[in-house]
Nucleic acid binder design. Structure first.
Lengths: 339, 339
DNA sequence: CTGTTAGCGCATTCAG
DNA sequence: CTGAATGCGCTAACAG
């Protein structure tokens, strides 16, 4: 910085102010400083400025996994939202509760980031208190947490609506695939399950939940296998996620079961591949989820109180070709399409 | 840090040493300090220590996109590789040359990260000189760059081998789908194309390259559409990536073309969904690619010279069900399986 | 509008 | 093995 000051013939303070766009610098001096900095390929050291401002210019993001489609898109949204605020994005992958704890405890979150975005974590009371004690703003992304800023969709309502849609098509026997979670997190999945249950209960129909022990498309294959081997095959299968639905579709195809003729399949996410499979699914705005969370985090990091600390984003049922009326069903009553 | 010192009854220096595991601290004092730090939930400020050591404890990663499967897996590998070194991961998404330039110029790379990992970027000479002038170690991941540490697969050899495999099956008319790249990057795709060309030339067969203007599965759909509309449909299609292959498969299925009966399809990547589509494809070790790049970057960041600055990882042809001998083909000669 | 000064929290000399 | 002093690069509060 001294070099820049010398080259532009001003003092350190003026360089500092000019480079930050702080007020109190003649536009002429400002220009000279910026030019000198460019020529010297000078950039301010965030570490040094953090030392005095207390703000690092970095937002930490914790995700349970980096691989699945969802997190790539969410991260992309977060990156976009952060860029507007000029903050950097530091990423931690914490696949289970122990790792998350390690993150919270050992990792340089405390004074090394201005805010934390937790994606798809449903912390228990203990984790919440630990996070809270971190002393930095926390934003939950894709998860509603009372008392904390969060950005989310209404998973329960969305799944309830998807279920109602199948009911309206004439389905009476609808199964739900809900993998048992081995990671120690609760996810939004419980809410989706609740939505399914609510719709079935409202229709006076029994629920049927298949809970494979694995995750992803394998879970779908396992669940479909279990259903195929059972006494009575449902006419429709709701999967907690598209990945699972893909597995269900594959197992059904391999078993020679016609979709949607014999069985309808509905997913959740509307990820890119859903179109390839012609999958009827609940779309959620994942990029926007990330972006909104990042905007919230940036506000909080800047010490401002955001107007809306709870942001609910809409979902949308995308009708494709894996769901239809069951064979021989009566035409559904008019005007009964789900919202 | 002063609080920790007071609480454990030692001086600041001792705390500093103890917390870093530096030599010259009695194990008793060390234990007291660590305990005190834990009780106070104290973590060192990376910014402050960076100020004096010159090392930030952070590695920057630039990816062109965050969404595609490839980058999620690569990032996961990088995260794993970095964790061992205790470094943090800061991510930049730079979708085109202009953004990359902005990253290099404006973003706090210079003294704000200890090394840079560039994933899937094939920089031109200009970009390379800019990157080089950054004054920090650069590692290329999934891209071989002469004169720079890099981790990569032999794309050309892998695609050549995949092509030979089709030739050995008896195919003579093999098309290659190679999307025109609108982002301004060259990617590894050119190398794969070269591999295909080499194999076709060696067999004395004419090449047929389809170059749709879009990317991802849409490119596959477009390419398949073009081929279907042409005078003569090839008996096999090589796609530059699995995503593209999925699009090809979909278009073929929609057109009622039997796979692999009428047309064989081969992808590249072996991403998770490839198994769902039963896609025969070239597998590359994406996680390892990231992990190895991270290990290299960590070495370089620590100022050590890594033994191997060029790491080539193996690929593997995964035989599934979308590729077979063309109808009525003679049995391939024995012992002619590609490597 | 601009320059001077005093730390921010830490690692690192150097003495003990 | 330990403690006291120095300065890393920067910003903020002050004078001019």
């Amino acid at each position: 910085m001294a070099d820049v000051a010398a080259r532009s013939g001003v003092s350190l303070s003026t360089v500092s102010r000019a480079l930050r766009g702080a007020p109190g610098v003649s536009s002429e001096a400002q220009a000279r400083v910026v030019a000198a900095a460019a020529e010297l390929a000078y950039v301010v050291s965030r570490g040094a400025s953090a030392l005095v401002t207390g703000r690092t210019g970095r937002i930490a993001v914790v995700v349970p996994f980096l691989r699945p489609w969802f997190f790539g898109v969410a991260l992309s949204g977060i990156h976009a939202g952060l860029r507007a605020a000029g903050a950097d994005l530091v990423v931690y992958e914490a696949g289970d509760a122990a790792e998350l704890d390690r993150c919270v405890r050992d990792l340089p979150l405390r004074r090394n980031a201005d805010a934390l975005i937790a994606v798809s974590f449903a912390p228990d009371a203990y984790a919440l208190s630990r996070l809270d004690g971190l002393g930095l703003p926390i934003v939950f992304c894709s998860q509603r947490v009372e008392g904390f800023p969060s950005v989310f969709v209404d998973d329960a309502a969305a799944e309830e609506s998807a279920t109602r849609n199948l009911l309206n098509l004439g389905h009476r026997h609808i199964a739900y695939v809900h993998p048992r979670d081995a990671t120690g997190f609760a996810w939004a999945s419980r809410l989706r399950l609740n939505g399914y249950r609510a719709a079935m209960a409202a229709a006076g129909l029994p629920e049927r939940v298949v809970a494979p022990a694995c995750t992803g498309s394998s879970a779908g294959e396992a669940a479909a296998g279990e259903l195929l081997a059972s006494e009575r095959m449902p006419t429709a299968v709701l999967a907690e996620s598209d990945d699972i639905a893909f597995g269900v579709l594959r197992a059904l195809r391999n078993a020679g079961v016609d979709v949607p003729g014999t069985v309808s399949v509905v997913g959740f996410d509307d990820q890119d591949a859903a179109e390839l499979f012609d999958l009827t699914t609940v779309a959620q705005p994942v990029f926007r989820l990330g972006e909104a969370a990042a905007e919230l985090a940036a506000e909080l990091a800047a010490g401002r109180a955001p107007e809306q600390a709870h942001v609910e984003l809409p979902t949308r049922l995308v009708i494709r070709r894996t769901a239809a009326a069951p064979r021989g069903a009566a035409r559904p009553p008019a005007g009964s399409q789900a919202r």
